[in-house]
Design a protein around this nucleic acid. Sequence first.
DNA 1: GCTCGCAGATTGTGTAACAATCAATGGATG
DNA 2: CATCCATTGATTGTTACACAATCTGCGAGC
Lengths: 211, 211
Amino acid sequence: MAETAVETLASVLRTRILSGELAPGTPLREEALSSEYELGRHTIRAALRQLGGERLVSIQPYSGARVTLLDDDDVRALMQLRSALEGEAVRLLNRRSDDTTLAGIHTANDELRRACLDSPTDRARIERAHAALHHAIVDAAGSPRITDAHARLEAESILFLAQLRHVLDAEEMIRQHDQLVGDLLIRGEDAIHEHLERAADQLIAARAADH
Amino acid sequence: MAETAVETLASVLRTRILSGELAPGTPLREEALSSEYELGRHTIRAALRQLGGERLVSIQPYSGARVTLLDDDDVRALMQLRSALEGEAVRLLNRRSDDTTLAGIHTANDELRRACLDSPTDRARIERAHAALHHAIVDAAGSPRITDAHARLEAESILFLAQLRHVLDAEEMIRQHDQLVGDLLIRGEDAIHEHLERAADQLIAARAADH
DNA sequence: GCTCGCAGATTGTGTAACAATCAATGGATG
DNA sequence: CATCCATTGATTGTTACACAATCTGCGAGC
């Protein structure tokens, strides 16, 4: 059955990164990981290389690996991809749009609201709920292919959310998503395009502000 | 200035894979690469792990790395992403649609036709031209963010083309793209959605045929 | 205060060795 | 003759050690 050490390590680190425990920018030192997990340095390096290929960590020669900090271009490219894909999902959704398919979206939005109100400081929970809502929207389109395609962007999207933490408080999070869900049927794809573009703009503007 | 050995190796292998010199399914043996490039096995392994993260090679425990063979689900997810993105590009394109922006598309299509007629056996050249045409369509939308997002899918798209080789001959390639370019302005995004879906279906059907 | 250079820390790469697993070969058996 | 199983050879997975290459921060000297 043999899951190799490199694979398990990569998957553990991936989880720690996506949960926000390892924040974007955090350095990942080989010796530290080596003694923490009791694995040889080469094993660590292989796992880091793999995560590098997945864009979850960035590797600078002779300076080491750190959790990826998405730069402005990364953010815009990622959001454009999501925008195109989620927009397509919404278009399909509005073509079928029976009430049962929308139930999942409202449930997910309620869950997000509850997370924001119950535990506004537990960002990991909020981010999971946030990702789940967007996932639900894509799912509601009823195309397994779109769901697959969206899943491929999910890891990086969560990385984006981890950076958005300091920009968007829980209240604003609720407000924006209530509006999104309310507008979905009326304004269609434009609603989600705007929603995603606003998020990207907010992060980029906030970063420009602390110059 | 120090480009590390792992990086150069990864980039050399990437090029060889995307040029089609290393066909999908080809095994990549560590010892062989080690003596071919005169590098230690660990260096090879690190590069392979990175390419694994980029999805260009698939690594099976204790059985080694091979150039990724996209399965049906991979193909559908990739095409759905491209479809959403290129569809978005076409929508933008038709909103501006001045003649100069279209010139690039026609040039690229002419180049593709020339490649198919001049050297129908030089698949690498045809694939470059093919990728360039789709790239030109996305470029014509005039949004650098969409271009960025599309670039991220390009490597895997070329991998898809490498597998499409045995399914689509040069003649059919010309026909489908002449139709696509002709329909772009009239039918808009639907034209490109159909174009991409047909390509995916053809590959999947052909594979089902040799069971 | 600034620059230079040195020293320590960290990463990059290689070699050697061995364990773990796979794959194919070949017999033993029905 | 076909089938199953075991052995063997090839390949990958992992480690330890060594050393080179490079970065980084700190202090000496100006």
